[in-house]
Write a protein that binds this DNA or RNA. Structure first.
Lengths: 165, 165
DNA sequence: TTCTTATTGCAACTCAGTCGCAAATGTCAC
DNA sequence: GTGACATTTGCGACTGAGTTGCAATAAGAA
């Protein structure tokens, strides 16, 4: 779907080895898949793509690697407003926090960053004394394209995982 | 756990009937439970509390009611950084968006609001043309109390759902 | 009270994610 | 290169949140 804008992303493999993490073929494959992804990938897609490189990779390995990378803060986990189901999505962590806008109408994900966001983070810490380690800002709604192209039929896609009238 | 600060919250029952939603005993019970909650409740707790009022309530009804209220924008769904498991938490929607700070150390949830947050929302819409319908800002880290009381042993609670070294 | 339609409870299901364990493999010292 | 050993993998069985179709029930309007 939406191509990713270019924030700086870490060279995950380098980070791993420099931190003394054992580099298995599976991890290498997974990390490469994440790094080269043009969209946000969920665990299932990650598995599928990793299997194109190493056919036997197991689901459990994918989840364990995700946990590892999350713990090392090399990837970020996203919900993307649960646009489809309860799964999580992943992206290589960036030098600058950014937020995600999920369009309920077309399903596209937009990324957005702003000094105001940084300002808000600073204010949180200053006022509440809370030390932020991970932050996640997501919004759901209707993107510009959908608003202008079909001003009436805005919400074809169902709300964040909702079914009835 | 953490008592909730007083943002204005809607009178959910009034909203429901004024919108012509059929008021069943189950919905009434669930709505009251949500409204009177002192913490953020997940579906299982919601079920348990509703059963104290109406013994036979079913899980499915809870989920269907949650969907309904979400769709009507009367409640907000939170992940609370997946502090424990993948479940979701709910709160009656407030007049003003606020963010949630989840302490990995003690598990407490802090709520926070700021004009800067409003400013950020305005900027998002102005710059990207995205019409925000739901917004969710959550952060995980270490709260002031945990930072000052035990500056070394900060992260007793595991990271957002992570298991191994 | 009756009628119609929405809602409920039930039970079976889906699907993401987890876990224990034996076999395989990366890394380091030699 | 070779061997030793801790770590990681694949497997399979499991958990737990959330969903769905359907017959029985109850709300609300007439």
């Amino acid at each position: 779907m939406s191509p990713r804008p270019q924030f700086d992303r870490r060279a995950l493999l380098d980070e791993l080895s420099s931190r003394g993490i054992r580099l298995t073929a599976q991890r290498r494959a997974l990390v490469e898949v994440i790094q080269e992804a043009h969209q946000h990938l969920d665990a299932a897609s990650l598995l599928q793509l990793a299997r194109q490189r190493i056919p036997g990779v197991d689901r459990a390995t994918v989840y364990r690697t995700i946990d590892l990378l999350k713990k090392l803060r090399l990837i970020d986990e996203l919900d993307l407003m649960h646009l489809e189901g309860e799964k999580h999505y992943y992206e290589a962590s960036t030098t600058r926090d950014h937020l995600h806008l999920a369009c309920f109408s077309c399903g596209r994900i937009e990324e957005f960053t702003s000094p105001v966001f940084e300002h808000l983070k600073a204010e949180i810490t200053a006022q509440s004394g809370f030390e932020i380690r991970v932050i996640r800002l997501e919004a759901g709604g209707c993107c510009r394209a959908c608003r202008t192209s079909s001003p009436t039929a805005s919400h074809r896609r169902s709300e964040p995982k909702t079914s009835h009238a």
